[in-house]
Design a protein around this nucleic acid. Sequence first.
DNA 1: GGCTTGTTTGACACCTTCGTCAAAGTATGC
DNA 2: GCATACTTTGACGAAGGTGTCAAACAAGCC
Lengths: 191, 191
Amino acid sequence: MVGQRQFDERRTLERARDVFWLKGYGATSMQDIATASGVLRGSLYNAYRDKETLFLRVFEGYAEEFLAEAARTLGHPDVARALRDFFDFTITSMTTGEPTRGCLSTKTAIDTKAEGERIRAALRELIDGMERLLLERISAEDARSRLAIPPEEAARVLITMTRGIVVMERVYQDPERLRATAASLVQALLP
Amino acid sequence: MVGQRQFDERRTLERARDVFWLKGYGATSMQDIATASGVLRGSLYNAYRDKETLFLRVFEGYAEEFLAEAARTLGHPDVARALRDFFDFTITSMTTGEPTRGCLSTKTAIDTKAEGERIRAALRELIDGMERLLLERISAEDARSRLAIPPEEAARVLITMTRGIVVMERVYQDPERLRATAASLVQALLP
DNA sequence: GGCTTGTTTGACACCTTCGTCAAAGTATGC
DNA sequence: GCATACTTTGACGAAGGTGTCAAACAAGCC
């Protein structure tokens, strides 16, 4: 290789992620990312083709990290506790920052400027992954018998609930309320 | 009055609502609304001051109508059926149109370009109203005893779930799946 | 008819966006 | 030291955004 990339790719993608996360896909301009990363717009276009492709690259890393951390939070031997830990993780993640950053995947799902099929597919992949993790956990011996409804249904209710919590965070800005709602659901699913 | 408004205000606000609903607040331009309504941009600015004020005006009508219809759907004497009817109404509402329009309040809640305090307040008002309706219904004699968790908590879980369903609609475009998820939750809350 | 008062209209100023491109720069291999 | 192959850089074009404003207009009142 000759004309080598001058900027730190890892760092740049991280900055891009932060901007996309905070402002959302549609409201983020390439200039925003250029400013945040210190890489000129032209270089970004040269390296990543366009905004959508750059975003997909960023989202890939985000999803991977998110799933890895989520899996860790589901580790507690008591199912109810594991689920609360899981919700706690997502809530902490979305209420981090000032102003709070919310949830990148949900922002993207709702963003009308992010309706391309590639983005949709990436979103589905992440949500499917989260649902799979939840299903695995609540299908375990100890959980299965305690569930109020079949594990497949419970997993879908749980994953849908995380999305709802994200929206409520935007409206009420109250993490405690979110945790309480999550705990209520867990209570109902594991009576 | 002398210089009277030339355009049909009711019709214009309806068109504006449709555009906001489809594209979301941030992605909608005044020109979009001008085109959809046939009213020139200048007239819109003259009549409504700016985009945010116009939106608030539109949202007011939307919220009122939504609450009225939601209240109607909760009327069935059997609680479980009433709740399913309620979810059915929201799901039908968001999957109407081609492409499906989703949910205006959720789109607005997530839109980073709609972070003004007036808009936030309007959103809270609507969600509070929906929660109140749900709480009233499930606090009724017949329901209270059947609930797996206290009615206040159940109401909050339910309203949060509607928001989650909106997000899942965006990702999977599958109304049946949404209805199934809603039914699962109702099943868990009313065992 | 003419005054008043608001609406309509189209042009305007100014800013931001995306994506492109030619020219300049630079590290490597030979 | 020079050709190669890629990146960087700044300018560019075309499009679209918000909000403003002066002039034209229309309807009622006297």
